[in-house]
Design a protein around this nucleic acid. Structure first.
Lengths: 223, 223, 223, 223
DNA sequence: CATGAATGAGTCTTCATTCAT
DNA sequence: AATGAATGAAGACTCATTCAT
């Protein structure tokens, strides 16, 4: 009398993977429209052309959807860095280029920073331990690899230094993004009152801050 | 329909100021017990020994209470920095000392960072424009003063550089604190799985990161 | 965070219609117990044996529930009038009979007038535009039909006159009901102080007033 | 140290009466700005240049202020009617003129109908019994007088008929005004959707309805 | 596998009135 | 008489999640 599936069933593992990523795609799209709050499950389901319940067949919670999206972003970014630093082509200024690479990534993936900022306070609170651990392990591994790649290209830094540096870089991304991303209204007011100096421009700000941070690292280690 | 004041009335301006700060004190105390979410107005009122309605005589919204607490923290911190840098006593290593001063402040005021992290996303959304503007103006002025004091003590930095540096410092505080402040559960798990490397120790982390940042600033400006 | 439906699910459209009317029935019942204020959503839900949230699956707001009840009353009343005036059976005194029909309807539906009185000031303020427009359009149509039926039976009145008359009739219902429906206390006092003359008896009052109004209409149009 | 009266004290009975009417004037003025809800006590006090508490020295409740305003309006209107019907000048059409007088009064006193509509449901619920009784007694007397004056001028109506007629007239005023006074938004929508026929024009509507009612009364009594 | 109906916890804010000063 | 600080009750609505179909 009802409960007839409208969408075809995902039976093969392949289909299931596909469906998972369909859901993520829809969720990401929705987030970009308003980065200030996670969309409702209802809306995500609608956007994905699925029923609410179906989402729960693929993710334990709404936050798990976004955690998954975020995790992929982190992996992609680290992979970019890794391939950059492993690249044979000698670069006159690897730090600046790496920083540019990061800044570009943030700019091209407007859902990355909003999710990253909510990771600890919102997402991880509602995601399965196992999922978190798996991701963080992967992260640690990837960061280790990147770090090695980096220290091979930048004299004066050990692998541990580079891990440290990556963590600091991440912190700086989080902090600067939040300082720049004020509620639209507040933003408006501050700008109109001559208080724009308190709102760092993210793109240029991050380039400069990271350059200082990395250069500073060399200096401190050297000294 | 109700009435019978239980508490004495704050009639003089002095008493009112006192009552305002009583409310803030109660609210801050409550926050320290669970820094992950703002306490309910009901609880704050109870803790302050006042009726809910009375809180609204002193603050427009719950968030305004916490915004006020946060604002005072910022002012105090900037004043500390200012007095530090204006102090005649020559310091061999002003950067390290300033960084230590900041790290100590954060440690001694456990409600500071949680509030700072929620400022843009939560507090400022529900506080009167005027209150925000007034505070941010003050902030800008104070930062200007501190910056001047700093650049007089640290050769090679202009006032604008120092403002920049203060903003970066703030961003680094925000970012590192969030990376370190994971939900207790997650924290626990990560540590037990050998993933502690992903959780920077805030106190030492911030000291190191800020040192790099400030040294890096000198370097970049010099170069 | 919750769940466990207690009531069976309304899956078919039929079941849904049934559930909607179950809610309305419960809400109407509650209103009759105290016609001076709309019951709380909590109470309605309890009376209907449903969770609060469930009500919101069927109505946008509490007021929408009562608007729906009221709308049905209007339609029923107009249908009664329509069928009365279309009835072949010749009536010696159609006006008196129609007026009696209206008075009876009001008496038999004690929630009708209280709701009608709150329609503009309370209900319509919190009901979706579309719902209002749909109902009012229907009302206009129905009134048009009734008006035609009336003017065919009562010589000397055009269709437009009859629409006018229906509106006046409605106004008189509203006004008289409010004059009669004083707070129980006030009512009591006035009666005990010989001021009963100021409290028209609704049932007889409406019969007489409408008779005058309709007869007056004939006269005015004729003259 | 405080609690110093800002306004001079009203000690003479005259001053007190004056102050009462100052309050009423301020309250009435405020109501005209938004006839959809009684202004807050705070606002009335501010508008009157007095403290909230002071208002309660002159009126038992907020509603009592408006009840008093309304009472005066009723008395004024009845006095107008009385003087009109007692006037020697013969009028060709006393009914039409009386109706015009009423319609004009409503138009010139935009706070009258909103208050009248709230009298039973809102005001009388929160006004002292004695005040209500006193007013209603006065009302009954005045209506009696007017009724006598009317029946002397309009053949075919007894005094009791005229009292009846006045009550019906009042009911019609209440009902029509409410039908016409929709929330601005709803009003707008209905007009734009061709449903304006459901919104009677008050001024012309009341003239016509009352004419019918009074003519009808003559007819019914005659017949 | 897919669906979507049902659940219910959780909370801020207003404002008429009182009464200490 | 005048003031205005203090009181506290009262209630709608959202939305993540479950599980019967």
């Amino acid at each position: 009398m009802s409960a007839q599936p409208r969408r075809s069933r995902a039976i093969d593992i392949e289909d299931k993977v596909k469906r998972r990523s369909d859901i993520e795609r829809a969720a990401a799209e929705l987030l970009k429209q308003d980065i200030d709050a996670l969309p409702s499950v209802s809306d995500i389901a609608k956007a994905a052309g699925l029923a609410k319940g179906t989402l729960y067949l693929y993710f334990e919670t709404k936050e798990a959807i976004y955690f998954s999206i975020l995790a992929r972003h982190y992996c992609t970014l680290l992979a970019s860095l890794d391939s950059f630093f492993r690249n044979d082509r000698q670069s006159a200024n690897p730090i600046d280029e790496a920083v540019g690479l990061i800044a570009d990534f943030v700019r091209l993936n407007p859902d990355f920073m909003p999710l990253a900022c909510q990771s600890a306070a919102v997402l991880e609170r509602k995601v399965d331990e196992e999922v978190i651990v798996e991701f963080k392990s992967r992260l640690l591994t990837d960061m280790g690899q990147v770090s090695e790649a980096i220290c091979r290209r930048i004299a004066g830094l050990t692998g541990a230094d580079c891990v440290q540096l990556l963590i600091q870089t991440h912190a700086m991304l989080l902090g600067l993004w939040q300082m720049q991303h004020l509620p639209a209204e507040v933003n408006c007011i501050l700008r109109s009152r001559g208080l724009a100096a308190l709102i760092p421009d993210f793109d240029s700000g991050i380039r400069q801050a990271l350059r200082q941070l990395w250069q500073g690292a060399l200096l401190v280690r050297a000294g």
